[in-house]
Amino acid sequence: MSDAIRFTLNGEETLYNGNPADRLLDVLRETYKLTGVKCGCKEGECGACSVLMDGELINSCMVALGRCEGSNIVTIEGFSKTEHFQVIDKAYAAVSAVQCGYCIPGMVLATEALLVKTPHPTEEEIRTGLSGNLCRCTGYNAIVKAVQIAAKEGDGLW
């Protein structure tokens, strides 16, 4: 193993030379300037820093960089270039599900992770899928509705 940590970040091969104990959240924001990844608590309790790691939703505040060796990390910045993103974007826009926006990058990736696993989720499955992403603005209804619209409009994509 070389000294650097090697992983794929938003589709690009990346070498990180810092401390393996560094927090992925901090590294994404400070080293790679991916500021769409938000920090809400640094304790794994709010989901604002959610990213996809090998396709699964994780809290980037709860990951040490060393754990990322060989993995594929996608943040909102990378995900926003995908077709899935377009569908989710339109769905959230249609019901004005974005208020302060701070939980949104994490919420979008939670939506993606959910639809990948369950392309046609029930309302209960949606609420479970988003249950780690706190939102203080919306009461969640509009977000749940947006996911339902995305699942319908994106039928076949996931």
Partner: peptide, 19 residues
């Protein structure tokens, strides 16, 4: 209803918060 004016910047993570 219209699409919120700040929807896109917030949705793509491009909106700039103080941090």
């Amino acid at each position: 209803s219209v699409v919120k004016r700040d929807h896109s910047t917030k949705f793509s993570g491009a909106a700039i918060y103080v941090g």
